[in-house]
């Protein structure tokens, strides 16, 4: 463990995993409760199309991917509370549209698919210090926002009609929440890739919801599971020479399976 912190590139991997865990895990609680778990995967496809588009027209890829990711989440916020269309429908359309657009644009792009995917999905093994600072700034801002607006995020997700009756601008808070998730996803995908971002946005919240009946504890447990998975994943991948992102994902899935078993054993005991 100490060895990891003494080697510069390993130290970067360790901090990248730790920051993404701290930043995405609290959001994962609401992502699961709002039933938008596939939003991360769908928006990753949209970001991929955005990068291909930027490469095709020789523009800066990351700002375009960031803008389109946030715009996609804002579009989701418009249907979040719609009686006509469940959010899953738009998530499905974003996934299909994003996938098709990336394939079509990559075919015509002057650089190869591997290059484009590397720009988009980064690599946890080659995280530059500038990206770590970007993660720190974005996640400090988002953590502060979640702490200060916890009551607005809660009532907008749990009982929007009650929120509106109390004079709370539910539509605005939904947009802020979705924009926050969009920002978190955009920077995380760039640093640690789509698979780890998607898993961090689902598994900690899902596992924690199995383990407690208190919302405040759910957030704490989600952060704990995410951080332990990130640290253990980095350490094990180094020791056993395994891909780091997938090892962290394996730990997150393992925690979910343990939580699932604990919840069912408890349920069996209480009848």
């Amino acid at each position: 463990m100490i060895e990891i912190l003494t080697v510069p590139f390993l130290r970067h991997i360790f901090f990248a995993g730790f920051l993404v865990a701290i930043g995405l895990s609290p959001l994962s609680v609401y992502v699961v409760l709002r039933r938008i778990v596939f939003a991360g995967a769908a928006v990753a496809e949209v970001a991929s199309a955005a990068v291909a588009l930027a490469v095709l027209f020789q523009l800066a890829p990351f700002p375009i991917a960031l803008a389109l990711t946030i715009l996609s989440f804002l579009a989701l916020s418009r249907v979040a509370d719609s009686p006509r269309l469940p959010p899953e429908a738009l998530i499905g359309m974003l996934y299909a549209g994003g996938s098709a657009a990336s394939v079509l644009l990559i075919t015509k792009a002057p650089r190869g698919e591997a290059d484009i995917l590397n720009i988009l999905f980064g690599n946890i093994l080659t995280v530059p210090v500038s990206m770590l600072w970007m993660l720190v700034i974005v996640f400090v801002f988002l953590s502060l926002l979640q702490f200060l607006a916890s009551k607005e995020f809660l009532i907008s997700a749990y009982d929007p009609d009650m929120g509106r009756a109390l004079g709370i601008s539910v539509g605005v808070w939904n947009m802020i929440f979705y924009a926050a998730v969009g920002l978190a996803v955009a920077v995380s995908i760039r640093v640690v890739g789509a698979l780890l971002t998607f898993t961090m946005l689902v598994a900690p919240g899902a596992s924690a919801l199995y383990l407690t009946e208190r919302l405040s504890r759910t957030f704490k447990i989600a952060i704990f599971i995410a951080v332990v998975s990130a640290i253990a994943g980095v350490a094990f991948s180094y020791q056993l020479d395994l891909p780091t992102g997938s090892t962290i994902v394996a730990f997150l899935v393992g925690f979910f399976m343990i939580s699932f078993c604990i919840a069912h054993i408890r349920k069996g005991r209480t009848g």
Partner: peptide, 10 residues
């Protein structure tokens, strides 16, 4: 019945 029972609230 309109409230979501998945939310772990006291």
């Amino acid at each position: 019945e309109s409230l979501d029972f998945h939310f772990p609230l006291t």
